[in-house]
């Protein structure tokens, strides 16, 4: 068993697609219907996100952690697409990480894991 799709709740599919496509560089895939709920599938480096509208207004939020080979470079590139980061990259025991939000309250972390035990 493996993880197939990661749901991300948005207020409006069209705006959500625009954010993921234009700012994060995801590619748009099919629409999937599951239990009468529509999911817009978006792909980024082999991982599939499933954008869906929170019909129940339950305030559901998602936190996605992106892997980065070079956090400073990705931070800089994402900033130039118009993403407002909550903080500049921070040094953590696990590596370097920067956080940003979308317009729907979902949280994203750009994480470059660093092995400090290596030479």
């Amino acid at each position: 068993m493996t993880i197939k799709y990661i749901p991300v709740f948005v207020k409006n599919i069209e705006d959500g697609v625009s954010f993921f496509k234009n700012k994060l560089g995801c590619t748009t895939m099919d629409i999937m219907i599951l239990n009468n709920t529509a999911y817009q599938l978006m792909q980024i480096n082999g991982i599939c996100l499933a954008l869906t509208v929170d019909e129940t207004n339950s305030g559901a939020k998602t936190r996605v952690i992106f892997n980065s080979d070079d956090c400073l470079k990705d931070y800089h590139n994402l900033k130039s697409t118009g993403i407002a980061f909550n903080t500049p990259p921070q040094y953590l025991p696990i590596g370097l990480a920067a956080e940003f939000n979308d317009d729907y309250g979902n949280e994203y972390v750009l994480l470059e894991e660093r092995n400090y035990n290596d030479l």
């Binding site: 400073l72 470079k73 370097l96 470059e112 400090y116 030479l119």
Partner: peptide, 11 residues
């Protein structure tokens, strides 16, 4: 020369 300094200079 190790840790974050080494990672950043290498990048």
């Amino acid at each position: 020369f190790k840790g974050d300094m080494k990672f950043n200079i290498t990048h």
